[in-house]
């Protein structure tokens, strides 16, 4: 079973702001742009229990500045950018060995960009700025 986790910021997201400004300088006028760290956990066991546990792991979610969501309902075009070898052995090790969270088989990481604009513009923004095809891939969610 796969559990997806989207981690956003409660505080101003300077990366999203810089990205929006850069897109504007490239004549791509996105009305609103949000960014979420993306995690996909392949797990064995109870999904609800796992979600409760993982949302309180501070190496992933710092409650002082982050919000954790298990689905994204935000308005806009959602683009997931991942490295081609996007699974994270080191995070898996930290979670399973150091923090002793049981039942995780694999962790994949990426970034989800939520753009308030047309699909065509979102794809253009992605191909021109948000991903590098030489070591990354993207998909529209």
């Amino acid at each position: 079973m796969i559990v997806e986790l989207f981690v956003g910021l409660k505080i101003p997201d300077t990366t999203a702001l810089t990205t929006k400004q850069t897109l504007e300088s490239m004549n791509l006028h996105v009305k609103n742009l949000q960014r979420y760290d993306y995690y996909a956990f392949e797990i064995r066991g109870d999904q609800k229990q796992f979600e409760k546990k993982i949302a309180s792991v501070d190496v992933i979610v710092n409650a002082n500045k982050n919000i954790a969501l298990f689905s994204l309902q935000q308005k806009g075009i959602k683009v997931l950018v991942k490295n081609l070898d996007g699974h994270s052995e080191s995070l898996l090790y930290t979670l399973t060995e150091r923090l002793e969270i049981k039942g995780i088989v694999k962790v994949t990481r990426g970034v989800v960009w939520v753009m308030d604009c047309s699909k065509e513009m979102a794809v253009e923004a992605t191909t021109l700025l948000l991903y590098n095809p030489n070591f990354q891939e993207y998909q529209l969610l």
Binding site: T14, T15, T18, T19, T22, S25, L129, N132
Partner: peptide, 16 residues
């Protein structure tokens, strides 16, 4: 540059 936002070097790369 630009705190490596998005990817290292990419924001500066788009600068005029």
């Amino acid at each position: 540059s630009y705190e490596d936002r998005i990817r290292a070097g990419v924001i500066a790369a788009k600068h005029p």
